[in-house]
Simulated assay, not measured.
Amino acid sequence: MISHFSTIDEVQKAMKENYAGCHEGVADFAEELTTDTIEIPESLAFYIDYEKMGRDMELGGV
């Protein structure tokens, strides 16, 4: 929220440093973050619930 910043420079800096891309929803974000940071064996990929991961990210903050 812009009201958390004192100047437009702070807003621009935060946007540059914290932008995580455009996603359809939190599940898509969770999947991209996970697959970009770790290698998931094919035998386990089916068991990963990105919807639940995304929900947990929203509730707990990432």
Results as ranks from 00 to 15, higher is better:
M1Y: 07
M1K: 01
M1P: 04
M1L: 06
S3Y: 04
H4P: 00
S6H: 08
S6N: 12
S6D: 06
T7L: 08
T7N: 03
T7Q: 07
I8Y: 15
D9Y: 14
D9W: 12
D9A: 15
E10P: 01
V11L: 09
V11R: 07
V11K: 13
Q12K: 14
Q12A: 14
K13W: 06
K13P: 01
K13F: 05
K13G: 05
A14H: 15
A14C: 12
M15S: 08
K16D: 15
K16Q: 14
N18Y: 12
A20E: 05
A20H: 09
A20I: 11
A20Q: 11
A20T: 05
G21F: 12
G21S: 04
G21T: 05
C22V: 15
H23I: 13
H23K: 06
H23Q: 08
E24A: 14
E24Q: 04
G25C: 09
G25M: 04
V26E: 11
V26L: 08
V26G: 03
V26T: 03
A27V: 05
D28R: 12
F29S: 04
F29D: 06
F29M: 09
A30S: 09
A30K: 04
A30P: 10
E31D: 07
E32L: 09
L33K: 04
L33C: 10
T34P: 07
T34A: 14
T34I: 13
T35Y: 06
I38P: 00
I38H: 10
E39L: 14
E39K: 06
E39I: 03
E39A: 09
E39F: 11
I40R: 07
E42K: 13
L44A: 03
L44W: 07
L44F: 15
L44H: 14
A45E: 13
A45R: 14
F46W: 10
F46N: 12
F46E: 15
Y47H: 06
I48E: 04
I48V: 15
I48L: 14
D49L: 02
D49K: 00
D49M: 04
Y50L: 10
Y50Q: 11
Y50A: 11
E51N: 12
E51Q: 04
E51H: 13
M53Y: 12
R55Y: 01
R55T: 08
R55N: 05
D56A: 01
D56G: 02
M57K: 02
M57Q: 00
M57R: 06
E58P: 00
E58W: 03
L59H: 07
L59Q: 05
G60W: 01
G60F: 10
G60K: 09
G60N: 12
G61W: 06
G61V: 02
G61T: 05
G61M: 08
G61L: 01
V62D: 04
V62H: 06
V62C: 03
